[in-house]
């Protein structure tokens, strides 16, 4: 959706994706699909070689896709088998409540208390110039 807006403003885009069904549904101008678990859209941690290959393939797709809405699959596999796919986002088979999400509110969620204190210092020193709050 954001890619469509940017593309409509004259800037070519490519979306990296690890969620094929979602990307196919929103139908962005161009996409690459990497069949990895969520949270690894651009590769595996500390594997610079793989991250670089994925980015080169992504740029190549940006350069060569001619048909709007193309999703080009990338040839990399997360593991030898696909066992990781079985447990992703499955309701509890017993039908019990397994929603572990914390209750959502509008409090900033800092990774650490030190971050919270640094952000408070930023605000005290005149505000966060690199934080944007549209709408």
């Amino acid at each position: 959706m954001i890619a469509r807006e940017i593309e409509a403003r004259g800037i070519p885009t490519i979306c990296m994706s690890s969620a094929f069904s979602i990307t196919a549904a929103v139908n962005p101008p161009r996409a690459v699909f990497l069949d990895f678990p969520l949270g690894h859209t651009a590769g595996k941690a500390d594997d610079k070689g793989l991250q670089r290959k994925i980015m080169i393939d992504t740029l190549s797709a940006l350069d060569s896709i001619q048909v709007p809405g193309t999703i080009r699959p990338l040839p990399y596999r997360w593991a030898e088998d696909d066992v990781w796919k079985d447990s992703v986002m499955r309701p509890d088979p017993a039908g019990k409540h397994n929603d572990s999400r914390i209750e959502r509110n509008e409090e900033p969620q800092y990774q650490s208390d030190a971050d919270r204190q640094e952000a408070a210092a930023t605000l005290a020193a005149g505000g966060c110039a690199t934080c944007f709050f549209p709408g």
Binding site: R104, E107, Y110, Q111, A119, C128
Partner: peptide, 10 residues
């Protein structure tokens, strides 16, 4: 980035 305001979840 550290020093920025974190995002919220809602």
């Amino acid at each position: 980035r550290r020093g920025q305001i974190a995002f919220h979840f809602k």
